[in-house]
Amino acid sequence: MPTVSTHGASIHYETDGDGPTVVFVNDVGYGAWLWGWHNDAVAGPSETVVWDLPGTGRSDASDGPLDVATLAAALEAVLSDHGVANAHLVGAGLGGMVALRYAHRYNRARTLTLYCTAASGDAVDEAALSGLALGGPDSLDGAFSPAFRDGAPDLFEQISTWRADEDATGDARAAQAAAMAGFDAPPLYEVTQPTEVYYGLDDPVVAPEDAESLAANLPRGSAAAVEGRHCCYVEHAPAVTDRLLAMLDEHAD
């Protein structure tokens, strides 16, 4: 289980599969469990890299405030440590912002797949984001639709266990949320990688129009709506991962 030190924190990451590298970047507070559905579909034809943001899972908390540039630098440290020449980036929420900053600043990004991401922290509903924190009475309400939660009680019992083991809490989660709220995208016309933006039609954290605006301002961006809330890409993982696999295949060379 490799680790790399960056900005005073030891960052944990895991790899699986073999082939072109696909890197997953977490949303605020969430642990690696978030990518279990994607990892199962992608690992094999591709190599996957899943890493814990500072203060999440087995990664140390940062000594000071976090911002998206610092998280992008942490991602660069992970990829450099693992010897990755180039990678397809998949990020959700805060992770999508990290992917945007990384693609603009560093030279390893081949494609971007962004879930429930906006170009600015000003577009983030901070109250709704706070409501997703572990321990709140409605922490799953903004993430998943009622129909999905009611139809899979055993799954949500498992998700609760995973969250208790892996999610960031307290100051560590607050630092991640502040990084998301403080984000301002680089000039989007300079982010030239093929990019697909997916958004939840009922996402309380990032409104559909803000995700669509992000896609429209990227030179090679496209947007697609998904039924559901802030974790719509988990709720509809089979369909979403099929689209991801198609994109990876299209840009395999």
Rank of each mutant, 00 (worst) to 15 (best):
V205Y: 05
S59A: 11
G135H: 09
S145D: 13
L214F: 09
E166Y: 05
R58Q: 13
S213M: 08
A246N: 07
D138Q: 15
V28W: 09
G221N: 07
H230M: 09
D154H: 12
V206W: 07
L75H: 07
A133I: 05
T15S: 03
D210M: 07
E250D: 08
G221D: 10
L94P: 11
V28N: 01
V240I: 08
A246I: 04
D203R: 13
F24D: 00
W33N: 04
L201D: 09
P45W: 06
Y115W: 10
D249L: 12
D63M: 11
C231D: 12
W37T: 10
R105P: 03
L34E: 09
D81I: 00
D210Y: 00
D249F: 14
D249K: 11
Y30M: 15
N39M: 12
V234L: 11
S10W: 14
G44S: 03
N107Y: 08
E166D: 01
T3L: 08
S120Y: 05
R229N: 10
H236F: 05
N107E: 14
T70G: 13
D171V: 14
M247G: 09
P137D: 12
H7G: 13
E47L: 06
V23D: 06
D27P: 12
L94R: 06
L75I: 00
T113I: 08
R105Y: 02
L188N: 04
Y102Q: 03
S46E: 12
H12T: 03
A164P: 15
G19N: 06
L248K: 05
D242W: 02
A103V: 08
A179W: 06
A43P: 01
P194C: 03
A224E: 03
S62D: 08
H82A: 14
G121S: 02
V191S: 01
S120H: 05
M97R: 14
A99L: 04
C232N: 09
G131S: 12
G55M: 03
N107H: 15
A127Q: 08
R105W: 02
G135V: 03
E212N: 06
F183G: 02
Q158F: 14
S80W: 07
A127S: 11
E126P: 14
